[in-house]
């Protein structure tokens, strides 16, 4: 019992320490793989701030990544990098706030399709702008920060998104969101302003992909609308979330690690096979693993060192349920 209380903080501290030391000791290749994993964890965790708490599945998350990337590309070497990252996040919050208010009134599958449509709309508007007004297709970024520098930025953003999810979970705001997920009408009957709560959650969740997009543009060094607004990004966020289990905070961590390693080993040599694998995984989760891998772990009672955030009741009661 008492030992257990120390296991978690110690494990978390050790993991944090090793994450901090990665760029110092690991090879460039390993560092970039871990950077990719952290990117996906950040993307998926922030996506879950809306989807995990309220059940609203957005296929537009990748669009914020693109907006962040394009913003940073436009002002690179004009403004300092940290300011650019922050501004990219804030612009996405603003965009989410503007489109979110009408869009979040739409429910169920219509919401899903609408978010996908909107992000495609952003993509093609940008293609039009780039081709007809700027006369370019893509942009090349020069004098980008070092891999190590980018790694730390992604690490910070990733941890920030996890911390945000935790804090929301414990707050009044989190309670409002979780009640909406179960029954929006009943939530309203009890005094929850559902429209406002969803709107806030959507805006907050857009902050992180905006910042991640800004950092990743520096990593990619070349961006064009087709790649940074590729809907596959949004699909993969969703698939990763479901693979990991959308009810748990370590869900994104498990899901992102698995998929990144899978893509790392398959993508370069057999790109089509990777897509097929994604499809098969998706079918498999829907049919056999609705709680994701994290749900599976909790079922076989492996002591999870990070407590479930998106699940509404702490583990002992929960385990009995499963």
């Amino acid at each position: 019992m008492h030992m257990q209380a120390y296991v978690k903080p110690v494990a978390i501290a050790l993991i944090m320490l090793s994450l901090l030391l990665v760029p110092q000791f690991a090879t460039t290749y390993t560092t970039s793989v871990i950077l990719n994993i952290l990117m996906w964890i950040g993307l998926v965790t922030s996506w879950l701030i809306l989807a995990g708490f309220t059940g609203y599945i957005s296929l537009g998350h990748g669009a914020f990544l693109g907006i962040g990337a394009y913003f940073v590309a436009s002002y690179w070497q004009i403004l300092p990098f940290p300011i650019l990252i922050l501004l990219s996040g804030l612009i996405c919050v603003f965009v989410a706030a503007v489109v979110g208010y009408p869009v979040l009134r739409v429910k169920g599958p219509y919401f899903v399709i609408l978010t996908l449509g909107l992000s495609e709309f952003v993509k093609y508007s940008l293609v039009y702008y780039e081709v007809n007004i700027r006369g370019t297709v893509g942009r090349i970024l020069l004098r980008t920060p070092s891999l190590e520098n980018l790694y730390y930025w992604v690490l910070v953003i990733c941890l920030l998104s996890i911390a945000t999810a935790y804090l929301i979970k414990r707050s009044r705001f989190g309670l409002a969101l979780m009640s909406i997920k179960d029954d929006e009408d009943a939530a309203e009957a009890l005094g929850v302003n559902a429209a406002l709560a969803k709107w806030k959650a959507f805006a907050i969740s857009a902050f992180f992909p905006g910042m991640i997009g800004a950092v990743m543009a520096m990593r990619w060094t070349y961006i064009d609308p087709y790649t940074v607004f590729n809907p596959m990004m949004s699909f993969q966020v969703t698939i990763t979330a479901f693979l990991g289990g959308i009810a748990y905070v370590h869900g994104p961590i498990i899901g992102a690690t698995m998929l990144t390693l899978l893509s790392q080993s398959l993508w370069a040599r057999y790109p089509n096979f990777y897509m097929i694998a994604l499809g098969v995984i998706l079918i498999f989760i829907v049919m056999f693993l609705p709680q994701g891998l994290a749900g599976l772990l909790s079922k076989i009672n492996v002591p999870g060192f990070i407590k479930d955030v998106f699940k509404n009741v702490s583990s002992p009661e929960r385990r009995k349920e499963l």
Partner: peptide, 16 residues
């Protein structure tokens, strides 16, 4: 609210 505890269910009412 299916996935909330009974206490949390009532708290939605008492908080909001």
């Amino acid at each position: 609210f299916q996935e909330l505890s009974v206490l949390q269910n009532v708290m939605v009412g008492s908080v909001f």
